[in-house]
Design a protein around this nucleic acid. Sequence first.
DNA 1: CGTTGTGAAATGATTCACAGCT
DNA 2: AGCTGTGAATCATTTCACAACG
Lengths: 206, 206
Amino acid sequence: MSAPRPTIKRLSLYLRALEEWSADGVTTISSQQIGDAIGVAATQVRKDLGQFGTFGHAGIGYAIGELIEGIRDVLGVNQRWPAALVGVGNLGRALLSYPKFSATKFEIVAAFDADPAVVGSVISNRTVHAMSQLKRIITRRSIKLGIIAVPAPEAQGVANALVRCRVKGILNFAPIRLGVEDSVGIVSVDFSRSLEQLAYQASVEP
Amino acid sequence: MSAPRPTIKRLSLYLRALEEWSADGVTTISSQQIGDAIGVAATQVRKDLGQFGTFGHAGIGYAIGELIEGIRDVLGVNQRWPAALVGVGNLGRALLSYPKFSATKFEIVAAFDADPAVVGSVISNRTVHAMSQLKRIITRRSIKLGIIAVPAPEAQGVANALVRCRVKGILNFAPIRLGVEDSVGIVSVDFSRSLEQLAYQASVEP
DNA sequence: CGTTGTGAAATGATTCACAGCT
DNA sequence: AGCTGTGAATCATTTCACAACG
């Protein structure tokens, strides 16, 4: 009875749309409207939500506040997720200043880099620490997520180090497949792969 | 008989692994080895490749060079894909200096920004142009892809402008769903969503 | 009425099993 | 013997159809 992966991806999308409606003062919404907003069928929305409990009200729709709370619970976004960033090149800097993170429960609370030239510098209010401090700071600050923004050849080593620090999940921006024990979640973002998907779409669809 | 979406995603992964083997001088490989390298079943690899022709040699395996060429053709990566970047904040700068792009057929050949303070500056060898130049330069340089790295509220407007310039695909980093005509491909990368996937994994798996 | 929740049917993707080639 | 290509079977996901509810 565990949740289909595609459902989880859509839950994030529902959540964002709902938060926007909520900010606009809307209090009630139908599965049809949710579906239209993100481009899936109304039935799909109902099936997805039905997996995790009964949030809706027949004849009325969904109470937005209630539903937001429910989805946040499912996604685990109701707890804080302090994160450690490893690698403060251009991408790392972009992540440190990415405004959306602060709007959510995710927060990069510490940054690390192997390059002595940047260690000690302050970027978007956070000091860059040496790799030797990784274990100490992650433990001290109860950090649960690691974000890898280093070049590919160093990524596996960083992943190993993060796993030894007992992080629960790793967001990986390096274009390689990381091997880690199953208890650690991995989500990868790979720009080149995204571009290849796009090239495929663009070359078959015209 | 059109290709399953998941197949296309895996093709990118196969391609990268094959390129690494090729660089190491390996010339022949089995579906089993490919599958092991990226974490899928050998049968899956064969099914995927079988969709697009017959690349393998029974009893032997796949000739790496041949297979790389075949996959590149399928993905449309054998042609050049000049791209225009819109938005040169931290993320845009990271993309301009992302080394992997230059190793592939993708290349950001022009950068644009609405902020007069950065227009005219040079970042990683490319001059930042004003938005008013978008149409002229995209047409002049036969640019086929647009990359959106602007804040969410501006993203739809930028997408509309890119579509008017007749780009074939858009890589979107803004956390909203872009509405465009079907003939334009869209691939979105959304960091907050990725983190939510991770939070879900991390909160159910331990 | 309009809208949810959900079995049942349809579609889509993966895995199995094996014939056939080298 | 080793390995590919593929039809058939299994498994997963989406869509349909509709009963139940406010």
